[in-house]
Design a protein around this nucleic acid. Structure first.
Lengths: 342, 342
DNA sequence: ATCATGTATGTCAACGTTGACATAATTAGT
DNA sequence: ACTAATTATGTCAACGTTGACATACATGAT
């Protein structure tokens, strides 16, 4: 038979075997208190020999710290978030913290379930990228956490810190680029949502267009889910409705690629008939066959900064609690070259 | 001030407030034991009013069950795994289990760290997709877990169950398709690894080629990391070394897209000069601009089956412990049509 | 009336670890 | 030689919940 049913090896077993008290074993494991060299080695030897592993539940119950940080994002499936998550994971693991990940799939209910779970778990802190629940509710959630870092969100009561991209300026750069390359009839394909990331970009697009003196109509704006399938569908509609459109700004690269796909489907030449921009610069955008002009966002770095901010708080280290990063225009093949105007 | 420092509300506080014993509160929370309707409602009211959340650490310490399943995969960033994970998450959450996710990034050290953490956590079971550590070591790891489900792995001592694709047959279908469409000089671009997924496909490719009577040389085989960048680089080399190659079978779609990119870079026409097949059918493969012929794998379903298998074990329900699924050929634009031969 | 069964609740120890505190032994400072 | 600080270890309760067991009252069958 196997040994699945046997009771767990505990700190007390190790103590007995090494002829010390349980507390001393605890000291050896954590290495943060006085233990003589000989005792340390003797205990460590026993631990290694029997393959003992401390029980996290007991530990976190006794110490009121879990060594876990919670992360809430809409979707690991989206390359943008998965890169952010990798930045978070790498930074956390390096400092001996683990990550409890929740993808909400854009559903408020799943987001709430994630918060509920996080509250039960007594995680040491949380990082939220793109919360979708109303601000007021979010504040209640944050208040119940020891520390909470928000990504791409304005500071909210209860939030410890914020890491964000200057979205307004970033999207403005994209719009300006289209203008400079001769586009005169712009459209914007937004993702579905009413929070900061969505409204801030929208504001940037509107401002940039009106500033240029071009007229604005509602028909120029589309809204779709953050998937290839949905953006394809909505972009297709938008293009059919606006045959004169010669520039389409997309909320992100996934949507941009969907839009590109729609152009291909309709036989619209990119960038000759229409220019397209994405946002994020996910690795696919750089493929020769895609060549999507986009705003490069330091995705991994966002995750790293957010996690470092959180860990600093946990360790009582002072540091910036409001980091703003910039995006960079990456010109590829879905927009015309600068100076080549109509 | 905020209330971060205040002590946690416990089951005892609720008990006092509702004038019952702590145990009765516990009964109300879990709803699995006799409680009168009146008592239930009174207790529930107090719980809702003060926003009480049970402490998971205490709960799992006392009950020896955590309500968490551990998942170990190479990389959430790869669309294949992220889809599998979504299947796992969805199924788990639906039955009130949570997922603790680890991406090993293909590093054995990170994989070991994940197992170490999982042992400490007393998760109720684990699902491993693509373990990279040696089989013998894996067996030790599995033995320490209550239940362990493996994905795309042959049954290993200590594993509770296995969910896999018939890789041999699947890749054989891809090779046969290339043959039927007239390819006579095949190559194979494998991912780096020595375990089942890698060797099984390799075996399929070799067998299918030799069966057809075509000669085999080592130079036809390449090996690269599972990223667009690396597969581009290695595929490019392979194509330069083998100018006569007219069909390239790729380990998966990410690598296939990298290879396609290499062809574009070298000015090789696909599928006129060379045919390319991928594996998995990630959503990108279906883009008009990519149109990668591939083997469609039920990714989400794999996650669902694995999780269901695990949950069945946890609940003592009998069920299959060895599920084999098939892949389906999806013909797109990187291979020539059947019957159109050279 | 008696007994078995089902329902409703309570008591108390246990889960495995750490924090607060206590105690010794050693070292250093005067 | 005496005190203070440092090093090394131990004792015991506490963390918040649940499992085992006990009790008590209804209900229905005999």
């Amino acid at each position: 038979m196997d040994n699945r049913s046997q009771t767990r090896i505990t700190i007390v077993d190790i103590a007995r075997e090494a002829k010390v008290s349980a507390k001393t074993v605890s000291r050896v494991i954590r290495g943060d208190d006085y233990v003589s060299k000989e005792t340390f080695e003797r205990v460590q030897e026993v631990i290694d020999r029997v393959g003992y592993r401390p029980n996290r539940a007991a530990r976190s119950l006794a110490s009121n710290r879990s060594g876990v940080i919670g992360v809430v994002i809409p979707n690991v499936n989206n390359p943008f978030f998965s890169e952010v998550v990798r930045g978070i994971e790498d930074t956390a693991i390096q400092q001996d913290y683990n990550v409890l990940l929740f993808s909400t799939d854009g559903h408020q209910e799943r987001e709430r379930a994630a918060y509920r779970y996080l509250e039960e778990n007594g995680v040491d802190g949380i990082i939220i990228d793109l919360p979708l629940i109303p601000t007021e509710e979010l504040e209640t959630v944050l208040r119940r956490q020891k520390f909470a870092i928000l990504i791409d969100q304005p500071r909210v009561v209860g939030a410890t810190g914020v890491v964000r991209i200057d979205l307004y300026n970033a999207i403005t750069k994209a719009v300006d680029h289209l203008m400079r390359t001769g586009c005169r009839n712009l459209g914007y394909l937004n993702a579905i949502g009413q929070t900061y990331t969505f409204t801030e970009r929208m504001r940037g697009v509107r401002d940039a267009i009106t500033r240029s003196g071009l007229p604005l109509t509602l028909g120029q704006f589309g809204q779709c889910n953050d998937t290839l399938e949905d953006s394809f569908r909505v972009a297709r509609e938008l293009l059919i409705q606006n045959p004169k459109m010669d520039g389409l700004i997309c909320f992100n690269d996934v949507i941009g690629i969907g839009a590109l796909e729609a152009c291909d489907d309709l036989g619209i030449e990119v960038p000759d008939q229409i220019s397209i921009t994405g946002f994020d610069d996910i690795s696919l955008a750089g493929l020769t066959r895609i060549g999507l002009t986009t705003m490069r966002v330091p995705k991994r770095q966002i995750g790293i900064e957010a996690t470092q901010m959180l860990l600093n708080c946990l360790n009582g280290i002072e540091g910036s609690l409001d980091i703003v990063m910039n995006a960079e225009l990456i010109q590829r093949k879905t927009t015309r070259r600068v100076n080549q105007s109509t």
